[in-house]
Simulated assay, not measured.
Amino acid sequence: MSAGTFSYAIELRSIASPTLWLVTVAALVLLLSLDLLLTRRSRAERMGAAVGWSVFYLLLPMIFGAYLWAGYGGGVAVEFFTGFVVEKSLSVDNLFVFMLLLAAFAVPSALARQVLLYGIVGALVLRAIFILLGAAALQSGTWAFLLFGGILIVTAGKILKDVLGGHQQEVDISSMRTVRLVRRFVPVTEDYRGSRLAVREKGRLALTPLALAAVAILATDIVFAVDSVPAVYGVTDDPFLVFATNAFALLGLRALYFVLQGVLAKLRHLNHGLSVILAFIGAKLILHWAHGIWPGVPEIPTLASLGVIVVVLAVVTTTSLLANRRDRLRGAAVEEGVRDPVQEPAGEQH
């Protein structure tokens, strides 16, 4: 059996005209510029403003999805909404890692917005590069579906192994290769110097811890791009929709971070859900590849995918809330000196 039997050529088609691409990119640049202007002043984020911006950035994809539905049909809109839900759920995990990095670098709250913006811009650039690479790989043959599916299933297995093994996500900045590499070649100041990334000290250039935190977040962006781009290609093979879902998912992260800052650590089962979602999309990609070679192999419809993803996220959110409530009740019982009724032997008399 020839190698060609296992791969067939495909031609990626996009709904987007050059005008739509131009308008989308221009709107993205405008929103990022606005975000940059808002973060120029070193001050802590106000909760009211963070909530307002989070709502705004959630309304934008809803409006865009409605535009796609009216102009290109329900199928395209469902692909966009499904991809957006996938990318947004993965982005929440990104936020948790950002939170750990900001804590590890002891970034002042007044500078957190600036570091987050650097991370978001870096993520957009990196994902744009990975989207182009993914499109090129798919055009060269559907072996890329197998590769993407394999990456997602391996990643899902790793995430599940970590959570079942009780390994907590933590950040050791001294062990990060990028941080060690920067420190090796460029001196770093001991303290923060406002919002400055570099200063002149003793006649030579030195980076501030703020620059080091930005480099660390950029390094994590690369890892997240490896997972997120194949995941959304499992929903749609339209490069424009892949780019749009990533852009909309990332745009509101800065504000959403401050809204969810106290909640992120409480979503204890989020990684369980992400592992299921990534494994599911990985299987969907492999089935899609196999269907092109053996038409009898079934495919998973995009609408069904959206249903599975929403149900998984709803389940892990509910179980996280229930687990947190159970821990609060147990903690209250311990404080009152009352024995935990869950552990009390049945039928014990007092």
Rank of each mutant, 00 (worst) to 15 (best):
A50M: 02
A50F: 03
V51E: 06
V51M: 11
V51L: 13
G52F: 04
G52D: 03
W53R: 15
W53S: 07
W53F: 08
S54H: 07
V55Q: 05
V55F: 07
F56A: 14
F56D: 03
Y57I: 00
Y57E: 00
L58I: 08
L59I: 13
L59E: 05
L60V: 05
L60A: 08
L60N: 00
P61D: 10
P61F: 08
P61K: 11
M62I: 13
F64M: 05
F64Q: 05
F64Y: 14
A66S: 13
A66L: 14
A66H: 10
Y67M: 15
Y67C: 12
Y67W: 15
L68C: 09
L68P: 08
L68M: 12
W69V: 13
W69T: 13
A70N: 09
G71D: 15
G71C: 13
G73Q: 15
G74A: 15
G75L: 01
V76T: 14
V76I: 14
A77I: 13
E79S: 12
E79I: 09
E79R: 12
F81D: 05
F81T: 09
T82G: 04
T82D: 05
T82Q: 04
G83P: 06
G83E: 06
F84D: 00
F84N: 00
V85G: 02
V85N: 01
V86K: 05
V86I: 15
V86N: 02
V86T: 12
E87A: 15
K88G: 02
K88Y: 13
S89M: 10
S89L: 14
S89K: 09
L90D: 05
L90C: 04
L90Q: 02
S91F: 08
S91R: 08
S91C: 13
S91Y: 06
D93A: 03
D93I: 00
D93Q: 00
D93F: 00
N94A: 00
L95Y: 10
